[in-house]
Simulated assay, not measured.
Amino acid sequence: MTDTPGLVELEAGALHAAIAPAVGGSLASLRARLPDGRWLDWLRPAVPRGLADRHPLAMASFPLLPFCGPMRHGRASFEGREIRFPPNHPAEDSPHPLHGIGWQQAWQVADAQRQAARLVLTVPATAAWPWRFSAVQRYQLSEQQLRVSIAVTNEDEAAMPAGIGHHPCFPHIAGTRLRTAAAGMWTTDHEALPVDVEVNEAVRRLREGALLADLHLDNGFTGWEREALVEWAGDEEGPPRSLLIEAAPPLDFFMLHSPRGYDHFCLAPVSQCGDALNLAPRWGADAIGGTRLEPGATLEAHFTLTPRWR
């Protein structure tokens, strides 16, 4: 993927990251060069077809803003303004739009250096999202880790609801394990939308360290301790290895997409649960997350990906 047209390439020691500004400002890959010259992928890498088609779901990770997860039928209201968001799933005929606006927009490169890049986005108010806002992403690569920062600023004259996050996808090979601690899991209805919180077997198994092949989940988790560890056994791709995911507030929630039989899974650090605006009247801010942004105010957060191999 090195030197692919349209990508911003970052390098630091053995680590290499590629960013696709035109494809939602997404991360296209995070990899390390092994001593024998092979590449070891820490995220599911974008392939040339996905980049050519500008398909965000084919990227290694993409930004979520100004809301995270699905919104039931694209309908919600906030302080007198109505949201009428159209379906936006690029691969399914779903009436429930998801992940906001940023992942399906081309971002502008404001600054790019060997180990860091800053991308910006400006979005006008529309019937889909009736507030003007701007956003910034910063990718910073060191020899030890990749730091991803995201910020949203309300450019409107009225307060705006806001949620932010990122959606990294990781390789799922035989024996892949995930350990992370949360207070509860959002259970879903027949349309895969959150309805209730449970402390169930999935929560307990993830806290102890779960074999991903034993899980079949597409759920949000609340009360996250903002840390997760992915462990892979040695295979033909490389040695035994792990990846530490650490998030800063307000990324107090995560979404886990781990369908059985897939070659990847996704763990998205987010600042709110799915369908947050519609769940707010029943559950309140502590349970669902999200932020009320005054005009001119900014919501920002970051997370890091730290690879370890031997």
Rank of each mutant, 00 (worst) to 15 (best):
E82V: 15
G80T: 08
R49H: 09
F62T: 00
Y139T: 06
A285H: 05
A12L: 02
D93R: 06
E246M: 00
F133R: 09
P45N: 04
R179Y: 09
G100W: 07
H16S: 12
D263I: 02
A22M: 12
W39D: 11
L10H: 03
T153A: 04
V203Y: 07
P194R: 05
D252W: 10
E201G: 10
P307Y: 01
H167E: 00
V109I: 09
V123Q: 12
V47Y: 00
R132M: 02
H96R: 03
N154M: 09
E236Q: 08
P35I: 08
D93G: 07
G290P: 01
P240S: 12
R308M: 03
T4R: 15
Q113Y: 07
E82I: 11
A12G: 02
R241A: 13
L229D: 09
P86V: 13
G37C: 12
D214V: 06
V23N: 08
F62R: 02
F170W: 14
C169K: 04
T222R: 14
L217H: 12
W283F: 12
H190W: 11
D196E: 15
A202N: 05
M185T: 12
G220I: 04
D53F: 06
N219E: 05
R31K: 11
R177A: 10
Q144A: 14
A52S: 00
I173S: 13
W129H: 06
G102S: 11
P48G: 05
R84S: 11
L40E: 00
N278W: 04
I245Y: 12
